[in-house]
Nucleic acid binder design. Sequence first.
DNA 1: CCAATGCCTTGACATTTGTCAAAACGAGGG
DNA 2: CCCTCGTTTTGACAAATGTCAAGGCATTGG
Lengths: 232, 232
Amino acid sequence: MRGVEIPEIRNIPLFEGMEDESFDLMLKSSYFQRFPPQVQLITEGDPPDFLHIVVDGAVELFAHSNNRETTLAILRPVATFILAAVLKDAVYLMSARTLEPSHVLMIPSENIRAAMVRDHRFSRQIVIELANCYRGVVRAQKSLKLRTGVERLANFLIRIDARGAGDGKVRLLEDKKKLAGLLGMTPENLSRAFGTLKKYGVEVDGNDITLTNLEDLKGLAKPNPLIDDRSI
Amino acid sequence: MRGVEIPEIRNIPLFEGMEDESFDLMLKSSYFQRFPPQVQLITEGDPPDFLHIVVDGAVELFAHSNNRETTLAILRPVATFILAAVLKDAVYLMSARTLEPSHVLMIPSENIRAAMVRDHRFSRQIVIELANCYRGVVRAQKSLKLRTGVERLANFLIRIDARGAGDGKVRLLEDKKKLAGLLGMTPENLSRAFGTLKKYGVEVDGNDITLTNLEDLKGLAKPNPLIDDRSI
DNA sequence: CCAATGCCTTGACATTTGTCAAAACGAGGG
DNA sequence: CCCTCGTTTTGACAAATGTCAAGGCATTGG
């Protein structure tokens, strides 16, 4: 694949400041592919061949153990995944599947490592990206261990409202089953959690949520920038 | 501080292959300090001044929210902490305190960043270290979301037995309160979990545990290398 | 030796969360 | 338009986990 020709890719922040030459060399034998929904892209336990980057659509990271499955993250553009496995050249700890029709860029692991040696600016960006991933998981773990299910849901709603217009009108991008998994609860419990939040001004109409009393909701949720604010 | 003189530090894997010159320059204005137990080394929300490395003793990473506190990890030599915050130059997401008398090496953040630019081998080691930290948290999160409390305890015991002599004789290094926090449960529940495991050949005598029936215990725990095996 | 302290355990109970089954709802295909 | 399918909600119940209070046990310091 030639890289510089596709601005959609060239303009990804991760590649910012990269030499065109390094960039093109790295994208040799890469793929920029479109997948339908529900395609499993990688499987936990497999060795890493490619760094994956979601350029369009949505990808779920999930894991199995004991016959149970859990959603660890839902990625939307532009996001990398399995970066740590690629850098360590160690097996994947998570599986990934598309949730929507998605455009995914796949760069061979060795190309990534080679580009890091060649291009110092890129190396720096990769380190920042990895650090961001790390901090994301730490936040998720704090949320899981320090909050109840209802609190996690309340904070989730406050967060996506703030990330959007902040006008209390929120649209869920994923179905409630996935959202439940992401928040660490069953779909039945998510339903009940929404029921509990009715008293705090949360009105549910399918995937459209309206927050009519943000003060009360925040009183319950007790949002904490060190968990909820992705920008720090 | 001069670095090359202290082999204890010079031989840390993270610094392997580093030029003596780079190493010495990096350790300028670093501190290698001894702390008593229960000293808080860093506080979540503070900006990162130093990369910390536990060279001796034990350090707990913990976090607060809502008046609740949880233990996120217990670090033993040799381990770095708050690496991601240092690399991003972003506030700490966790606090840290010593649990035992501990020797901690503290290297100014800028020195780390400068050494990464100067010394490519070191940069590579830092990336690997960060990737390891990331994978550690991912494992912890999988454990939390896919296992019950009893299962987490059972796997913990199997893991430290395997890491030691593998003879079924296990010694808990931390008190049960901390262990409970680490495993994501209350101390009362940990007590009960040990009670449940009695049927599976787990004998408790203070901090000395004996696993008399590893087969049965594994039948309950269903250990999974993608969660429990740190070496992959 | 005793008292005091802190840790751990136990019991009783409340809350949270999960499970199973059934009903309600909604989107898409004939 | 109706049927079908999968999602979502609801109810009833079970299991897991947390909370509070009390007691046991070991350690420490007088």
